[in-house]
Every structure is written in structure tokens, then in C-alpha cells.
Nucleic acid binder design. Sequence first.
RNA 1: GCCCGCGUGGCGGAAUUGGUAGACGCAAGGGACUUAAAAUCCCUCGGCCGCAAGGCUGUGCCGGUUCGAGUCCGGCCGCGGGCACCA
Length: 887
Amino acid sequence: MPSLPQRRYLAALFSQLSLNSVILRGSLMARYNPKETEIRWQDEWRKRGTFRVGEDPARPKYYVLEMFPYPSGRIHMGHVRNYTMGDVVARYKKAKGFNVLHPMGWDAFGLPAENAAMERGIHPAKWTYENIDTMRGQLQSMGLSIDWDREIATCHPEYYRHQQRMFIDFLKSDLVYRGESWVNWDPVDHTVLANEQVIDGRGWRSNAIVEKRRLSQWFLRITDYAQDLLEALSALDRWPEKVRLMQTNWIGRSEGARFYFKVRGRDDRIEVFTTRPDTLFGASFCALSPNHPLAAELASSNSDLADFIAECGRLGTSEEAIETAEKLGYDTGLKVAHPFDPDLELPVYVANFVLMEYGAGAIFGCPAHDQRDLDFARKYNLPVIPVVLPSDTDPADVEIGDEAYTGDGTAFNSRFLDGLKVAEAKAAAIARLEELDAGVGVTEYRLRDWGISRQRYWGCPIPVIHCEACGVVPVPEDQLPVLLPEDVSFDKPGNPLVRHPTWKHTLCPKCGAAAERDTDTMDTFVDSSWYFARFCSPRSERPVDEAVDYWLPVDQYIGGVEHAILHLLYARFFTRAMEKCGYLSVKEPFSGLFTQGMVCHETYRDPNGHWLFPEEVDKKSDGTATHVETGKPVSVGRSESMSKSKRNVVDPETIIETYGADTARWFMLSDSPPERDLEWTDAGVDGAWRYLNRVYRLVTDPAVDLAAANAPAPAALDDAALEVRRATHKTIAALSDDLEKFGFNRGVARIRELTNVLYDFVGDGTAPSDATAAGWVLREGLETIVQLMNPMVPHLAEELWRQLGQTTLLADTPWPEADPSLLIDETVTIAVQVGGKMRGTIELPRDGGQSEAEAAAKVLPQVAEAMSGKSVRKVIFVPNRILNFVV
RNA sequence: GCCCGCGUGGCGGAAUUGGUAGACGCAAGGGACUUAAAAUCCCUCGGCCGCAAGGCUGUGCCGGUUCGAGUCCGGCCGCGGGCACCA
């Protein structure tokens, strides 16, 4: 039994055969053969170097970039969607006269290669490069307008050697530092994860519950740029609002104060951070993070406290734990003095809800105006003192129950702050803290520095040497690159670089003594933080050269919203770091960003609950489904993002084999708006295929003889022909606008509409009154359709352009221009309302007056009837749009 | 919990940003061509009433602004996404 795609393929084959009989019957009608055509045009573009580009100061540049793929083995539908959209933009901009850079490369370092090595004994390099070869071939079969001469792979020494050089520059510019810190340790992958790579307490890749460990790490000072990264967001007006908001929240700026509590009976003080210094007179306790140094000190002589701290650590960071965790504290017995009045004393707790990583690792609690603090105070019977009075409330009526008051108001119970609004009180409290030398106003950020050390093999080696005498020594430039050793084994967990017999042993560049290389490699997010710059001069001896000044920034970046924070924020930071070191003269890498939706498909399960591939399922027209082999019923589940685990995947290669790349591309762009999820359906693909053939037939076998190619326009056109011309030019104008705005689905609909207009024009079997005019406008319409669809279905368009007798390459042909005089109709249809209700329409010359319109409208029977017996109070007239009699 | 976004036919979605709701397509039904099929072409297709002309109703629900609301405002309901003991 053939699978569904196989059957579809056989059906296609069968119709190819039946085309012979059509020819035998004498018809000229041939059938579009995408397989032969697509390869032919791809060869032609390649031979001519159509998409090879260089800097050309005479022309405006346009840099189109889709997020480069990880070479996992095969392309998936998400890639097809992503690269189709990018290709539409690239081809459109090229036709509009831009010098378009549209490159492709591979995000080629990373864990899956090492997993493959462990599971199947293939070397990561071999695995990766083989995958790249496969996927390059698949992408090329899509007919993308890519300059393949610029291809790069981040795992290639010719790429990562530049990254190492920049790392050393960053080190010299104090953009990198070595820090010892608590890290998220992934016990499955045996590696450290950045905070943002920990999702719900689990590793983003392994899904293992993350442990806390203390390690020496390399950090990039992204926090130095927190304010700049935040402020610059507002200028990124061609980014989705959603992404800018997510980055804003991620950076997490908050203004407040850092100040000190003096500890009774000790010399030291406890530093705390607050955003609400105005509520200081409502303080009823001080709380330390379980990881706070003072907590550790106290625990060393207090086993109960040590147990409590251990308990907090065991809680972990998993979502369930946090969700259900009660706010717990341990009273240390210490007391601190209130900064504004030493006579006021607060107890010091260690509390499970205080984070060491944020602020000062300690807080003061004001239960009346913070929900967490209130929960805590109720549990440990601490005082609740309201100090913010909501407006229009009597102080006597203020009562805090189970809900803290976090709104605006006026300070009270707060001595010198009384009567001030919250914002004023904050400023006054900070002023007093500074006056007393007890604290200072500060701005804190949620953003943490970026730890980039990874205990992995398949990544960019960190080019430093650890010498016992000299400490950390950068690898001298003439010794770069630090190459990955090829003879490594993956039979044990852990980093092969550590246990390699010779690789790490070297000599200190400073003192010449025996020393060891850093065995860590860089986070792969570093690789993807500058690849867009490397594409400008991919073979340069330097990381980047002058070409970046021509090409950067990327004018249109396209990718999945899942990279809204990590990749995009890192790349923005890295661009700034490169700018600081003199590599670039821009600070923002991507001036335009588009985030596309995912590709979804229905899910199928057999009676045992096992997931089934779409080709294993036979769908009936009534919506039910059965298993192809067993005939057993199959339950059809909701459409979800395509994933291997749920088996609801369709292989792009099968689709391209069966229907051709153009059909896949056309379907990708139809129906669903690009930012939304797309539902992949067999019927939809069939629809796309049918449409492309419809256009093919209209061009290759028109019912009216076409005018000669490039023939001048006839002196006069009859009404029908003129209407077709108008439709043609309106489509040009509208489609250009659609493409500028990523309205691909609207664009597809418009092209189809114009096709319908042309079919109606020639398809009714009656000979046109003026065959010359008809042949001319039909050619203009067809050429327009072919040109407009070129960015979307370039092979078919190129083929039909040739069949229309054109000798230029469509890929090199300028975008058609709409004639403005044809965009405006001579007559307009005006809606007529009576009392706001539609009663009919009238046809009037464009820009006609109100009196004519009223006269024409009153004649309409429905209008007359609706108005009978009523007096007109007012008439609303919007020229060319609407006429409304208010009765 | 907080912050965003979205609710339009059986389905995916249009609607020049306040001016004829349902473009374009998918699915479905009917018909033509054919020995038959495939392919293709034509017609119907939000709901209710009506033989028809036509009428009423309709963009998640309730209310408001307006001559006029899918579009603006307020309040609900539902779905999706992001963030989360961030002091």
C-alpha cells in the first residue's frame, strides 16, 4: 500500500501520462512540469550568478536575512516558511532596484552533534558537515535567491578564529571578565546554562531539573549596556511591539534605593534594595536570601538555620515547587535599627522568597503595601503598619486585611514624609537616606551578565591559557586559532577537551612555564551574535571589514518569535561590544524585524493512543479517519505546531518532489497572515497546485491571440478592455503595498483576483469586439501576473516570462509600475442609507456633487419606500463613499 | 498573580483604519464535458422568513459614543502568548 504522498505522486504521474492523450487529440495544452522547470531555472540562475552581489555605492542596498538554521539533518516546514518569506522580500527588493544581500549559513556548533557522537559514534564534525550538505541541497531546491558564495558555518575554523580574536579584544576592553558564581548546572548535559536557558527550572534543551553549583565562568558585561539596550528599543520602530515589550521586561529596570540596616551588637550592616523607600516607616522586618553571606555565617553556628537554608535549596526552582511554596522564614534573632530612627528595631529573618541574584540579596518587608510581605507577616505575626493612604480615604478607615494596598496615595504614619504623594515621598526618603549617609538612590536591572562558558566539546574554544604564575593569559594573536582537537572520544559523559591526553597542555605565553588551556567552549549564542556582520565579508582575514559599513544594519530580519529575547538581545549587545572595539560603526544590528508564526498540522492517534504520521492516516470526507494499514479508527486531534514527538510532520522534500517548490511556497504565503500560525493541509496544497496550473494554462493556451511581445498599446480600448487594464494596474499598486507590509496572504488573493478577471475576460467563449485590444490587454495582464508572482513562485514566473516571448531574465527585470491614471475609476458606487440602514447603491461619476447623488438615490424604490412618510432631518454625504438620509 | 495579543460563515481569512461585512481560497452541494474516471469549466453556499421580488437578523456577550461601529469607549466571558517570590 503506497503512503499518501506516494499515492499523490502516482496520481501526478498518471496525469502526466494522460497529457499525452490530450496532445494526441490535437490540443496544444501542455501541463506544467515543475520538476524539470525548477531545476532548469535554478541552473540558469546559478550559471549566470544572478544572485551574487557585491558592494555598489551607486545603488541603495537592502540586506535581507532570515535566522540561519541549525544543521539538524533535514529542513522542516518552519524553515520553508521562514525562507520563503525572506525570499519574497529579497526578490521584490531586487526588482525594485535595490542591491540586495541575501546570504545563508549554518549555526553549526551545539549539543545535538555531540549527542549524535555519543549515540551513534559519528564525529560531531562529520555529522554536522553531512547535515549541512543535505540541507543545503534541500534549500537550493526551494529556488531561494541566495548568494551561496557567502555561505558560512560557525563550526568552521575560518569563522570561529575571528570570534576568538574578538573575545581577546573584548577581554582587553573589559567587556569580558572572569567571575565565580552560582551557575545553573544541567546534570544531563553536564553543562552550565544561562539564566534564560533555564525554563521552569529545567534545561532548555535537556529538560533536566537544574542544580545550583559554583563555578568559575567567563562573563560578558551585558549589564553595562542595560540602559542603552533599553532606551534604544524605542527607536526600533520596525520591530514588533511585542518583542520590544518582552525585551523591556527582560531588562527589567526598576528605580529605588540601596541602603543599610545597622545590626545590633555587631559591626556590620545589611544592605537592602527597595523600590518603595516611601514605605520605610511601614517596615516590620528585614529578610535575607538563603544564599546571603550573613545567612551562611549564622548557619555555621546554628544547625536549625543551616537545615532551613538547605531546605530552601532543595525546593529548587521548578515551577511546581515555587507555585505551591509557602512563604517561609527563619528568625535569626538578630535585630537591625531603622535608618530613620535608631530606636525602631526590626527582626532579621532568612526567607525563602528573597533572591540573592537580584538587588542586594536582602529586603525590608512592608506588609501593608506588598503582598508577599503581608503573607509573611501574617504567618509570623509581625506588625502591619499602613503608611500609604489611598485618596479620598480617612486614615481611621484604613485597614489591611488579606490584601496589601499597592496603589497610589499619600504618605501617613510616616513622620517627615506625611502628606507627600508616593513619588514625592520616594524622592524625600532617598534624599534623607543620602543625607544620613545610610543609603543611595539607585537603578537596578533584572538583566544579569551573560555567562558564556560551556563545558562542552563542540563549540568555539575560549582562547585563554591558565598559568599558575601569571594567572589568565590570552592566547597571542599569532597563535590563533585555538583549534578543536579532532581525536576525541564521547564514550563517557563530561567534556572530552578535559580528558584529551595532550590538547590542554601548553606553555604560558608570558613566562613559558607549563600551563593549561581553558577547556570550556563558548555558548553557541555567541556564534549567532555576529554572523550577520560576517556575511558582509565572509572570507575576510579580519572578523569584518569595510563591507559592513555598506551593508549593515540588516534591513529586514525574519525569524521565529522564540528568539525574541535571547538571541536578539545578545546580538544587540554584541553589536555594541563590536562597535566599542572598533569593528563596527552601528550599534543596532537589525533595523527591521519580522517574527513569523509556526507551521501546524492536525494530530492523529490510533486506538492505543500512539501518535501517527499524516501519511499513515486515511481521512474521509466526513472528517473521520482510519489507519491506512489496519483500517482501525483514528482519532483526529487539534492542530498543533509540527513536532517529531507528535508525528504531525510533513516533510518538505516530499512536497517539493511531488508538487514542486513553487507550490509549497505559494501555499506558505496564501491564507494565513505570516505572523500567525499556519495550518498545513493537503487540500490547501492541492489548491495552490491547481491555481499555478490555471495560470500556466492561461499563459500557454490563451483563448485570445496575444499581442506581440513589447508591442505598443493600441490607440483606443473598448470599455471591457479598459476595465481589464484598470484591474491590472490596481493590482500592481496594491500588491507593492502588500509586500512592503508583509501582507503576503492579501497579495496572493489579489493576484488570484486578477487571474479571475483575465479568465472572465476571455473565457466566456464569445469573441471580443476588438481582438487587437483584447490581445494587448490580456498580454499586459498576464505579464503583470507573472511579474507580480515572481517573488513568490520564481520558477514558474521565470518559465512563463520566457513563454510570453520575453528574452530578459525575470529575476533581473524591474518591478512593474502602476499607471496612476488607471488607478482611479471614472464612476463610483455610493451606498445609500436611510436612517443608517443600507437601502441600495447608486453609480455616479467620480467626485460628483451631493445634489446629484440625492436625486439619484431618491429614485431607488427601496430608498423611496423607506423614506415615505418620514421627514429628512439631515443628510450625511461622504463623497464617493456614502449618502445617508437621517430621518 | 502581573503584562501583552486575539475572538468575523463549516474552515483559513479579507474589509483602503468609523462608511456597501464575508474579498480570495478550502470544504460541501448541484450541473456541464467524458463510455467512465482524472483534469477542467459553470452555478449555489452566514442564519431566519418568502415561490419570488425582497425583508429581518448577523463580526464572543452586555452597555455606551456616532447619521453610521467588525473597527472607538466601559464592563464581562473565552482563547493564546510572555513573565514571575524582581523587593
